[in-house]
Design a protein around this nucleic acid. Structure first.
Lengths: 355, 355
DNA sequence: TTGAAAGCGTTACCAT
DNA sequence: ATGGTAACGCTTTCAA
């Protein structure tokens, strides 16, 4: 195992100055092309592949690393299709711009990862990140872009949750009004509507009209569509699901689908929930879309593939990641003024039974 | 925006020495508990949240960051269920051990990310990483764990691909032999069997019995099962699919399912491919499992959820990630001897039609 | 094109 | 228990 080389040693070996080697790596215009070529190839032969990042960023005050902090645990985020799509978009832009990606979780106790937070040149914060982690990052004074989280002070990238959920609910309602009986029964499977780790129904105080939480916006959209169609949605037909996973979702769906009278429509705040609901309905022998309409939100890839496929709201998660990353890189290099980007959603009607 | 604080300034403000502040953060035993408390809370109030990572790792020669390099592009990897599961397992262990996760792609031209590679204390290499990137990382002399890639010199974590694919093929064959006609027609949808970016069938020279590539191992497993059951698999019934995505997979599946005589069994080297094949079969009006058996590999979550659910080989991707991460952390701190871990696979029989 | 030198913020050793 | 200080590897400025 070779010793670790540094600039000084390489310079000595090649018989040139230390500054010249540094320039060969960072400032091609400061020396002749031939010399640069020679230095690059020789030093590579020696086993030196460029400046040490720690030293370099210590000296320069910038590292070329972008931190992405996720509100949920890293491990969970990799299993969540929406988070994965966001990361997909982010990484695409970062790779294009030769930036590195450091993943941080925002749900860690205390200052356990504090030292790592000092490295990145800027941060993308995904979801609602609370407490210490947020404060620490904000205190660094480095550029921040928040995604799926409304705040004033920093750049944000959001989608129009209210319009999206309103559109999909309207679609479901009008479809039911045309083909069904008059008295329509609606249940809502909500994602993270309140601060509880259990699947449960809502209480009167849980609907806050002016909350900035995205799930409350989605709820508002559903409610607007309902009142436009003269449909009443009872509070005890609204479920809170604490995490976007099949287990909790199936639990809630089973509860909702075994209430009486049984819902004709299940409005789900995510595709993962909706797909779980579809499975539960199948288990219970409920025909979709004959006896039950299920709508989703997100438009994850599986929503198109599944049988039956899912009517949902496309929220362009990949594009959201791209936009956030571009905005961050822009604000790192250009010191632009605070932007609040809102991406459009699009109603995706499927639910057609192919066979 | 506050100025960036450093140890020296904090020490001055608090009227203690710089070494003491450093010790307060890193070596609690070097000072009295009270003083430590005071320093920690005061410096937090001042806006100092712990040592700068660049400086710290420059001085210590270690950063607390683990690099995960993926053979495919980052962006693609986030969309691949198997890679996501691996990352899930890795991140679980890293978070538990308070390590940070730096993501690198192994398919970048030249030395574009060279400086970032100097930061991590060790690397997990996922898949077959070729060329410059690999050399550079190996030359650093830092611990490396390779996953899904057989080599001698470094730690490796693999699964028993041959046994897994043999088992699933045997299952399909015996099932067909019991219920079907005598003359069984088999096609294989292979993943990355050769070095080509196109969907195509294999040529005689493409089957190399002694290749270390995981897909060749899987092919070997299929072939062994076939010869045990006296089944002949023609070379032009083996497809190469360059990437684990639905588009390529559907293309190959369509080709395979429109050959004559039509295959009775489709052995797929991944679940993504198998699920795509199931969809294509449905489009073509082919009944599963009546007219066609489809088997997968990986056991991604969607394989259990899909309709019909998929018979496949569980390869414990999450556990693989955990094992790799633990091995890496172990070899960073303990200088252990080179390990070659092979995880078992498990046949998962599903394909039962629930309704 | 080069050499010398000043830091960047930290840690660890050696004194006190 | 605390303080002083050299060194980690690099970039950049300045003068030659």
């Amino acid at each position: 195992m070779k010793k670790k080389l540094n600039l000084t040693q390489v310079a000595k070996q090649l018989g040139v100055s230390i500054a010249t080697v540094s320039n060969a790596f960072n400032r091609p215009d400061q020396l002749s092309a031939k010399l640069r070529e020679r230095i690059l190839s020789e030093s590579s032969k020696l086993g030196y592949h460029g400046p040490n990042l720690a030293a370099r960023s210590l000296r320069m005050g910038a590292s070329g690393v972008i931190g992405v902090m996720l509100a949920d645990s890293l491990s969970y985020s990799f299993s969540d299709p929406v988070a994965s799509q966001l990361l997909q978009g982010v990484s695409e832009v970062l790779v294009d711009n030769k930036k590195q990606l450091l993943l941080l979780s925002g749900n860690l106790d205390s200052a356990e990862q504090s030292s790592a937070e000092s490295l990145p040149d800027g941060f993308i914060l995904y979801g609602t990140i609370k407490g210490k982690s947020l404060e620490q990052i904000e205190r660094l004074g480095k550029p921040i872009v928040k995604v799926d989280c409304r705040t004033e002070g920093t750049h944000t990238v959001n989608i129009d949750n209210e319009a999206g959920s309103k559109a999909v609910a309207q679609h479901a309602f009008t479809h039911s009004l045309l083909t069904h009986k008059k008295d329509i029964n609606v249940a809502i499977l909500g994602l993270r509507l309140i601060d509880s780790a259990r699947v449960c129904r809502l209480m009167p105080e849980d609907v806050c009209a002016d909350s900035q939480e995205i799930s409350q916006s989605r709820l508002k959209g559903y409610m607007q569509a309902a009142s436009q169609c003269n449909i009443n949605i009872e509070l005890n037909k609204i479920w809170h699901i604490p995490i976007n996973e099949t287990t909790s979702a199936e639990l809630a769906a089973r509860e909702a689908l075994t209430t009486f009278p049984r819902p004709d429509i299940l409005l789900c705040m995510s595709d993962v929930i909706a797909l779980s609901a579809v499975r539960v309905a199948r288990e219970l022998g409920i025909d979709i879309p004959g006896q039950l309409q299920v709508t989703g939100f997100d438009d994850i890839p599986e929503a198109a593939r599944s049988q039956p496929s899912l009517t949902t709201v496309c929220q362009q998660s990949i594009e959201k990641g791209r936009v956030a990353a571009k905005l961050l890189l822009d604000s790192i290099s250009n010191d632009i003024e605070t932007q609040h980007i809102v991406l459009n959603t699009r109603l995706v009607v499927r639910n057609s039974c192919p066979n």
